[in-house]
């Protein structure tokens, strides 16, 4: 078939290209620029090849930040997804309490991130914070400023408080879209509460759960503001996640080349992991093509 050539198409495509260029490509290229060169200011650049990348990839510091971040994302996904599903299941489907619940759920999402950090920083303080003072008042040795485990618990609880709502709202949207007939049929088939969840609610929530997991993974993997405000990455380096480390490297130490290389690696890791999540989750439960081709 002859291909149709129509130069008018450029007219429609150009605005998008320009926008994407300004918002993504050009800034990214600046980073690429720094990642392959060395500079001492004055706009003087020296070709550095892949040495920055080698430095990042072999750096102990990068490895530990990466591991910390993976553990953090793993923990909050393991808590927020099941918890979000449970809360969504417990929410009313109709009546007066629906809007009340929805608004209450949405509240943490509306608070600016550094405010969330500040709230928890104060909340968890052992001298004046309600939570911190209560916990130490109970005789538990809790101090997020000095104890790494306490710092981790604080950051994880804060993230759960802040972001579980998102999972709840997405799951709830998935749940209310299930027609009543499914529940009625399950009743007639004599299905238990667990079977209803396992064979009706969970499969019907699959799509939104995928979105929830992706969003929560990406966000938690890029987390910066809240731990930065609460712990500043400490004590020591115990809550220094990748983005905090990156900022330290770029702004604190002014090591632009290594920071740029790290940004690119960081970006590629998120992209790859998101892709893996997406592929795995969309393929779960989808039948493989059968021989005979009766599809």
């Amino acid at each position: 078939m002859e291909k149709t050539w129509n130069n008018k198409a450029w007219f429609f495509v150009t605005p998008v290209l320009v926008l994407v260029a300004i918002s993504a490509v050009i800034p990214l290229m600046t980073v690429v620029n720094y990642a392959f060169q060395d500079t001492f200011g004055n706009n003087a650049f020296f070709w550095a090849g892949t040495s920055w990348f080698e430095e990042v990839l072999t750096s102990e510091r990068f490895h530990s930040a990466l591991v910390r971040n993976l553990i953090f994302s793993g923990i909050i996904l393991a808590i927020e997804v099941p918890l979000g599903i449970l809360v969504a299941l417990a929410m009313p489907r109709k009546g007066f309490w629906v809007p009340v619940c929805l608004v209450l759920m949405a509240l943490p999402l509306l608070i600016p991130w550094n405010v969330v950090g500040t709230i928890w920083q104060v909340f968890a303080r052992t001298d004046i914070g309600l939570l911190g003072a209560t916990v130490s008042g109970l005789g538990i040795d809790y101090n997020y400023v000095q104890n790494p485990l306490d710092a981790w618990i604080t950051v994880v609880v804060m993230d759960v408080w802040h972001w579980t709502s998102l999972v709840v709202l997405l799951c709830y949207a998935g749940l209310v879209s299930i027609p009543d007939a499914y529940y009625q049929a399950a009743k007639i088939d004599g299905a238990s509460r667990w079977a209803v969840f396992r064979y009706i609610q969970l499969p019907k929530m699959g799509r939104v759960l995928l979105i929830a997991v992706l969003l929560r993974f990406m966000d938690s993997f890029m987390i910066y503001t809240e731990p930065f405000v609460v712990t500043g990455g400490g004590p020591g380096n115990s809550t220094t996640f990748l983005s905090i480390d990156l900022v330290k490297l770029a702004i604190g130490q002014f090591n632009l080349g290594e920071a740029a290389a790290m940004s690119l690696i960081y970006f590629l890791i998120i992209l790859t992991l998101s892709y893996v999540f997406y592929t795995v989750m969309t393929n779960v439960g989808v039948e493989k093509p059968q021989k005979g081709g009766d599809a």
């Binding site: 007939a181 009625q184 007639i188 088939d189 238990s192 064979y199 499969p203 439960g285």
Partner: peptide
């Protein structure tokens, strides 16, 4: 009861669907 819109359990095979009320 058979409903207006077909109710099937998506993640099960055809045979498992039929076995479901018996298993329960």
């Amino acid at each position: 009861q058979v409903f207006q819109f077909p109710v099937i359990y998506d993640t099960m095979t055809v045979a498992e669907n039929l076995a479901f009320p018996l298993k329960n």
